[in-house]
Design a protein around this nucleic acid. Sequence first.
DNA 1: CCACTGACTACTT
DNA 2: CAAGTAGCCAGTG
Length: 107
Amino acid sequence: MQPFTRDVIHIIQNIPPGNVLTYGMVAALAGHPGAARQVARILHSMSEKHDLPWHRVINAAGRISLRPSGGHDIQKHRLESEGVRFDRSGRVDFQECLWDVPAMEDI
DNA sequence: CCACTGACTACTT
DNA sequence: CAAGTAGCCAGTG
């Protein structure tokens, strides 16, 4: 497994309840700015094995990227149960929910 | 090793 | 706001 993959998993496991991160930010924190697609891919294939809170990762627009048939509602429900609010267009409030990453070393 | 596939993003029409 | 474009790079076969 690549260091990038390991870091991405590690970062996602550290997102506290009620907070979210974007794919791009996770990629950047893992040392690969612009590798957002890979984060999505890792979530898709490793979330079960590594027990990841995959629902706390959303796209840069603040919306859920899953297709309605791919768990979109499940993700929304899990976030709402953690206190994440969605506005009428289905976007989360970054000001309140975006994870304020402590420091690179703490992750 | 090559080709293909993405739960992406930023930028430009 | 919608649609197109060009990067992105780890899995998978």
